[in-house]
């Protein structure tokens, strides 16, 4: 149980090329676990249809068993009662695993700002990509998947590199200031916005 030989390689060119291959294979064959919770699940199913066809990414094998899944698309609102189930299914997934929080309800509670709904699934499980929309159109989900591939899957550090990355993250967390004291995340220097009509 656990990881294979790729975890024991010393960092260097060999490890980087292994990382490349591992990233490529994970990107090309990412099986989602079936986890539709509400209306977003309908759009998630639409992504499997001929118009958008998630199979192009090799992702049409929605895995019923979390053991064989790589990606959890939390599609829909997570009620307080569902929260432990979400967590359990996530825990049952084999590493490495990723999470897309699809739609505003899963991401932040959305318009259901009440006692029954978890205000963001990141209270329960680590989320890799947040996807706005209510529900997001299928292209938005594909966009989130492409983003996930690009940012998290393609160059996932392994072995020694991962230990180093974890250490860096730990140090950053220790040095972090409270949110209200953090600098703004966006460039607020000028009034020049993105050209949305382009």
């Amino acid at each position: 149980m656990g990881y294979g030989i790729e975890e024991k390689l010393p960092s260097g060119i060999l490890l980087s090329s292994v990382e490349e291959i591992v990233g490529l294979s994970h990107k090309s064959s990412m099986w989602p676990v079936t986890f539709g919770l509400a209306c977003c699940a309908i759009e998630m199913m639409a992504v499997g249809g001929p118009h958008y066809d998630i199979a192009r990414f090799g992702m049409e094998r929605f895995s019923a068993s979390p053991r064989q899944a790589d990606l959890m698309i939390v599609a829909g609102r997570v009620s307080q009662k569902m929260a432990p189930v979400v967590r359990q299914v996530y825990d049952q997934m084999a590493n490495p695993k990723w999470v897309i929080s699809m739609g505003v309800c899963a991401s932040s509670g959305g318009m259901f700002n009440n006692y029954a709904i978890v205000q963001g699934v990141d209270h329960i499980i680590p989320v890799d990509i947040y996807l706005p929309g209510c529900p997001p159109r299928p292209e938005m989900l594909l966009n989130a998947i492409v983003q996930l591939h690009k940012e998290k899957v393609r160059h996932r550090p392994l072995g020694a590199n991962r230990a180093a990355a974890a250490k860096r993250a730990e140090e950053a967390a220790m040095a972090a200031v409270p949110t209200q004291l953090q600098p703004a995340t966006h460039d607020h220097g000028g009034y020049v916005g993105k050209n949305l009509l382009a």
């Binding site: 990509i129 947040y130 998290k152 966006h186 009034y191 916005g193 050209n195």
Partner: peptide, 21 residues
């Protein structure tokens, strides 16, 4: 519509981002 991002803070859009060019 391509709005997906990897953290919650970046998805709060401010006036500078929303203003038309």
């Amino acid at each position: 519509y391509e709005l997906a991002d990897d953290n919650r803070a970046d998805l709060i859009f401010t006036k500078e981002q929303l203003l038309a060019p």
